[in-house]
Design a protein around this nucleic acid. Structure first.
Lengths: 205, 205
DNA sequence: TTGTTTTACTGAACACTGTTCATTTTATTT
DNA sequence: AAATAAAATGAACAGTGTTCAGTAAAACAA
């Protein structure tokens, strides 16, 4: 019987339908302003139906969480051909910031939201994506150290410091804490601050 | 007539009562889980009463926002006696992180929340606190440059970079994105990363 | 094809949320 | 003491996430 297989396929399709609608609404109008009922309306089903495919809103967010990390890691692939590890690290940071600026809601979901977390049941899985991305950073930092960049052999500390700096720049912008600068100057200022940070790192040979 | 004056005093007292209850509940159980009704219950008044003193929840948050910045700036006062500007900057950063770790909900209100913002009416006031704090950073960075620290004379870029780095470290912790480290190691790791950052800055003379 | 069972979906209902406003209670003034 | 002004109430509105008895549709069996 191919029935069970078709059913599975249909179930996956329905999940995709829900997720696509959710992503669309989230990106358009933010997480807080998007309700289950909005999503249900969008796909022309009743609110209850969504709960047949996702046990709650958190699980739906978690699904998008995974997808978003996948997208970020794809961005990082573009960097693999760069031979010099420090140059690779630098460009990776630029892509990271670009991703944050271009996908504010997804970035929020990945690094700022509490919702998809807190649920005790998905205690381990939720972190794997983030850990995967952080491991990529660790590896490059390792390579940089081996190639003679960075005085001190401290992969953990250096990685955490680098991530924080870039994450901080993105967060300051996404959370609109850059009003000390004029409207159009904000992103350039943050990008400039990033380049200053890179110079600082470069100087620590 | 001293009546109007007493009335004013009573009004201020009532605002204080509401704010204290709100702060208590926010710190205890977070912003999202604290409702106007919770606050009303806490002070043993009806929900409607709160709206006689604060026009909406945002305004109440804004009040706490101001207070929180005041508290942070108080922390920074402890640093004024340090003569060497770079040493002062360093210790200021440590106090900033400490403040964030010790007051997660207030930090969220100050640097992460969207709620007290967005309301168009409080468009300017809300930013003044943040700008004030950032100006303190600017000034110290200025002093550092004048004292011969930092190769390049770039107050804006350097200030923004420094704030981002520290803000990133705090945010990573508050938003629980440090599961790559063991429970008890997290804050020490972040503090270590900060010290690494300071070394980096120090090296850029 | 018909009857039975399994699956999919619905939408009303529950307990919440922020906010408003007619009504009542309390305080002040005449 | 009566009239006025101010303060507090709590029911009501429109919204939220979530549940679940009931219905409709599809799959299976005779």
């Amino acid at each position: 019987m191919g029935v069970t297989e078709r059913k599975e396929r249909e179930k996956a399709e329905m999940k995709r339908l829900i997720k696509d609608a959710a992503r669309k609404l989230f990106i358009e109008q933010g997480f807080e302003k998007t309700s289950i009922r909005n999503i249900a309306d969008e796909i022309e089903y009743s609110p209850g139906t969504i709960y047949l495919y996702y046990k709650d809103k958190s699980e739906l967010l978690f699904d998008l969480h995974q997808e978003s990390f996948q997208k970020l890691i794809e961005q990082f692939q573009r960097v693999l051909n760069i031979k010099d590890p420090f140059e690779r690290l630098t460009v990776m940071g630029r892509y990271y910031m670009q991703y944050g600026f271009e996908n504010p809601e997804l970035y929020e979901l990945m690094f700022l939201m509490s919702s998809p977390i807190e649920t005790i049941e998905c205690r381990e899985e939720i972190w794997e994506d983030g850990r995967g991305a952080f491991n990529m950073l660790r590896q490059i930092v390792r390579e940089c150290i081996d190639a003679g960049y960075f005085k001190i052999d401290d992969v953990e500390g250096t990685s955490l410091m680098i991530w924080s700096a870039v994450h901080g720049l993105v967060t300051i912008h996404l959370k609109k804490r850059t009003t000390m600068f004029e409207e159009g100057e904000r992103i350039p200022r943050l990008q400039h601050a990033y380049e200053r940070f890179v110079e600082l790192l470069k100087g620590s040979i």
